[in-house]
Amino acid sequence: MKELVDRVFLLNRATGRFEDADLYHGLDSTNLAHIEGRWRPLFELRRREAKASLQTLAEVNAEDAHWEWGKKALAALNDPFLFDFFVLECGGSTQAILMTRKGGQDCFSRHPEHQRLPLIYVEFLATAPWNRPKLVAEPTYKGAGRALVGTAVSLSLEEEFGGRIGLHSLPGAEVFYRDAIGMTDLGADSEGVHKGLRYFELSSRDAATFLSVQH
């Protein structure tokens, strides 16, 4: 089940034009079919190509999903309403998915400005493989990350968390979260499920800046 939140935009890199994109709260079988039938084959193709050319899977942003997914499923079983899904649809396909958590593990700030205050934790932000500059030579849409981070910040404000969000960036996306979004890099986790990934947080103050600054 999903419901429309709003209409946003993505930039079609090929045409240089913005296209309408529907932002939904929740996801349905159509989105799952897109991921299985459209995302997965492209990931598999690029993984085979990367291996043949001796590239690492991290270099092409196509690492394996790891066993922690099982733990997330168990957590979702225990607290199903702590998790929210958002999907971006554009051009007849699912362009990106966001999964957030609003309570429990990982939902407390590590930021020195307000340690332990509650925040929205981004369990994952995943874009379609054809939108990833590291994965394909000519990526299609640009802007899914910006729209979904804006959605997570909006959810944080709606929950009265002051716009605070936290996430673990995948390798290669750090520059986006640090330089484009303006999140604080709080270093790589030395243990736990996100070991080796850098943790970023948007403080309440930075969330206000994030939403107010316009080019």
């Binding site: 991921i35 942003n61 999903a65 790891h66 997330k72 995943a126 994965l135 986006f176």
Partner: peptide, 9 residues
């Protein structure tokens, strides 16, 4: 640049 975060999907 890429913007993916969290668990790989």
């Amino acid at each position: 640049v890429d913007c993916d975060a969290g668990l790989p999907l």
